[in-house]
Amino acid sequence: MSKTIACVLTNMFEDVEYDKPAQSFKDAGHKVVTIEWEKGKQVTGKQGNTSVTTDEAIENANPDDYDALFIPGGFSPDQLRGDDQFVSFAKSFMDAKKPVFAICHGPQLLITARSLEGRHATGFKSIQVDMDYAGAKVLDQEVVVCGDQLVTSRQPDDIPAFNKEALKLLG
Rank of each mutant, 00 (worst) to 15 (best):
C146Q: 13
A22Y: 00
M131R: 08
T4K: 15
S126R: 12
A96I: 03
T112L: 03
V16G: 00
I35S: 03
N62E: 11
T10L: 08
N163M: 06
I58R: 08
K168P: 00
V33L: 02
A161H: 14
S153C: 05
P72Q: 10
P156I: 12
E142D: 15
E56C: 14
T54A: 07
T122Q: 05
L170V: 11
L170I: 10
F13Y: 12
L69Y: 10
G118V: 09
P63S: 12
P63K: 12
K31V: 15
V16R: 00
D83Y: 00
L9A: 11
P160F: 03
S24G: 13
S92Y: 00
V87K: 01
A121N: 10
Y133T: 10
N11E: 12
D65L: 00
L116F: 06
P160A: 04
I58Q: 03
K97T: 08
D148G: 15
T10D: 10
D148T: 15
I103T: 03
A90I: 02
P21I: 03
S2M: 14
L9Q: 04
N62C: 06
F70S: 12
V8L: 13
V16D: 00
F124K: 10
N11C: 07
V145M: 01
K31G: 07
L139S: 13
E36K: 00
L139M: 10
S115I: 04
L150E: 07
A57T: 06
D95Q: 14
V33T: 15
D84K: 15
K137L: 08
E59P: 00
Q23H: 10
V151D: 01
Q108C: 02
K98W: 02
S76Q: 06
G147W: 14
K41F: 01
W37A: 08
G74P: 09
K26S: 03
A136F: 08
T54V: 07
D132Y: 00
R81A: 01
D67H: 09
D15Y: 08
P99C: 02
E14M: 09
L116R: 06
Q141L: 08
G45N: 07
V138W: 08
Q149Y: 01
R81N: 01
F89R: 04
P156F: 13
I58D: 07
K31W: 04
V32C: 01
F75M: 14
K125I: 12
V33F: 08
T53R: 13
I58C: 07
K125T: 09
V143R: 11
G74D: 03
F101R: 10
P156S: 15
D65I: 00
S2L: 14
T4Q: 13
H30G: 04
D27S: 13
G147D: 15
G135S: 09
I58N: 08
H105F: 07
Q149C: 11
N60V: 00
K98V: 09
F93E: 06
L80G: 09
K41E: 13
V43A: 10
S76E: 04
D55C: 02
Q149D: 04
C104I: 02
A161F: 13
D95V: 12
T53D: 12
S51E: 00
C7F: 04
